[in-house]
């Protein structure tokens, strides 16, 4: 059965401009990152765990977070990494390697996140290695994926 000859398809491209409100917790995070290149987290009001990214409630205790804020990172530990081998994916993410990272001062299980890895020699990538962020110096928006260009190994 030849698709094009026998059956017709109608194109319908969807273009939408969404606008997402961050709320006050992530809002503070975005503002600190954009204006001061600082990474901040809040704390659970009950168990005292550091919540990164900051959020309204601790997922375990389900009580409203306290108003106590702490600075975390910017140095981080590389938990896991992989090469983007799917065609198109490296271009889309502007990176050949992605890593899962845990910032200093955060609990990896609760707070690790994914980001681009900026490495000259991928052969030197090791799980557990120490890394630091490379900040975007111009036109920061507050978004961690835009304002941090990637993480690079700490020299020495």
């Amino acid at each position: 059965m030849t698709e094009k000859a026998e059956f017709m398809r109608l194109p319908a491209t969807v273009n939408l401009e969404y606008k997402y409100s961050t709320g006050r917790y992530l809002g503070r995070f975005y503002k600190e990152l954009r204006d001061n290149k600082r990474l901040v987290a809040n704390k659970c009001g009950k168990c005292g765990r550091v919540l990164f990214p900051p959020r309204i409630a601790c997922p375990d205790c389900m009580v409203r977070a306290s108003d106590e804020w702490v600075e975390v990172g910017p140095q981080a530990t590389l938990i896991f990494f992989y090469e983007l081998q799917i065609p198109g994916l490296a271009e889309r993410h502007a990176a050949n390697y992605l890593g899962v990272l845990a910032l200093d001062g955060t609990e990896a299980e609760l707070s690790c996140f994914e980001h681009r890895l900026m490495v000259d020699d991928p052969g030197k990538l090791r799980e557990g290695m120490r890394m630091e962020p490379v900040f975007n110096e111009e036109g920061r928006t507050g978004r961690i994926r835009d304002d941090i260009l990637g993480f690079k190994p700490i020299e020495g």
Binding site: P53, F80, L89, L98, R116, R145
Partner: peptide
Amino acid sequence: GPLALVQDYLWAIHTGAFGWFARMGRK
């Protein structure tokens, strides 16, 4: 592609399902 927004919409870098299942398999 259109499912890329089906993630934590404020936070994630969208590697989607491939990334998750690769990480889980490796672990």
